[in-house]
Design a protein around this nucleic acid. Structure first.
Length: 224
DNA sequence: GGCCAGGACACCA
DNA sequence: TGGTGTCATGGC
């Protein structure tokens, strides 16, 4: 299975439509603060949102969720603050590297950093140790409002079980297929991603709960 | 007590 | 290029 057929595009659209009908509209990212969104994207790596959220609350209580303050915090102190999110030392280094970039190259202005063109912003984010493709695209879509579809493990699992991709399709290739299949729209991309995550958490887990799946009739790998 | 969660990265074959 | 181990916490 190497090519993406028009049937796949239709199937993906149908699936997203059914997920929306089942779960309703998703307004996924609760934060309004742009720095909080970027930090949250790092904190939630391989971590439940409840744990990441607990770390954000600790940062807020410490009044540390500001570029200049984060920049001045030691790695150790930041790691202690974000401990509930897990992988705290690696994530502290990534957050520090991010705010250092914003401080050095954008005079500490988050809005200036996020307003550069999406391609350059993605390159900048990916050059920061601890920020990979998914986290960079999270930031592009939710903080920079760029029409970038986020590919996460839930998306991979869903599309694999639907039978439209192979198990290890490279990130860029999969993202390109999605971009060509779906109308480029920031609001829709945010909602689609949130719907897929919601479905992944509730039903399409590692061990899927196919008996309660709203798209089981479309799935080619029931129970796997 | 084990499994899993809104990844990234180094290392090895 | 693909597979694997490591990083860590908290909820279920």
């Amino acid at each position: 299975m190497t090519e993406w057929s028009s049937g796949n595009t239709a199937l993906v659209k149908t699936v997203l439509c059914k997920l929306h009908a089942h779960y309703g509209s998703q307004y996924w990212w609760p934060a309004q603060d742009l720095l909080e969104m970027m930090v949250g994207a790092i904190l939630t790596q391989a971590t439940s949102w409840s744990n990441a959220s607990a770390a954000i609350i600790r940062l807020k209580k410490a009044q540390a969720l500001h570029v200049d303050i984060l920049d001045r915090l030691s790695d150790h102190k930041l790691a202690l603050l974000i401990q509930p999110a897990g992988f705290q030392y690696a994530k502290a280094q990534a957050i520090k590297a991010l705010v250092r970039r914003i401080t050095d190259d954008y005079r500490g202005r988050v809005d200036s950093f996020l307003s550069i063109d999406a391609s350059s912003l993605r390159e900048q984010l990916l050059s920061i140790r601890g920020i990979g493709e998914e986290t960079a695209d999270d930031i592009l879509l939710y903080a920079a409002n760029a029409p970038i579809f986020v590919i996460d493990n839930y998306t991979r699992t869903l599309l694999f079980r639907l039978g439209v991709i192979t198990n290890h399709m490279p990130y860029a290739k999969l993202q390109s297929l999605i971009h060509r299949s779906l109308h480029s729209d920031v609001k829709s991309y945010k909602e689609y991603h949130a719907l897929i995550v919601e479905h992944g958490k509730r039903v399409c887990r590692k061990t899927p709960l196919c008996d309660r799946c709203c798209i089981a009739d479309l799935c080619r790998k029931i129970g796997t």
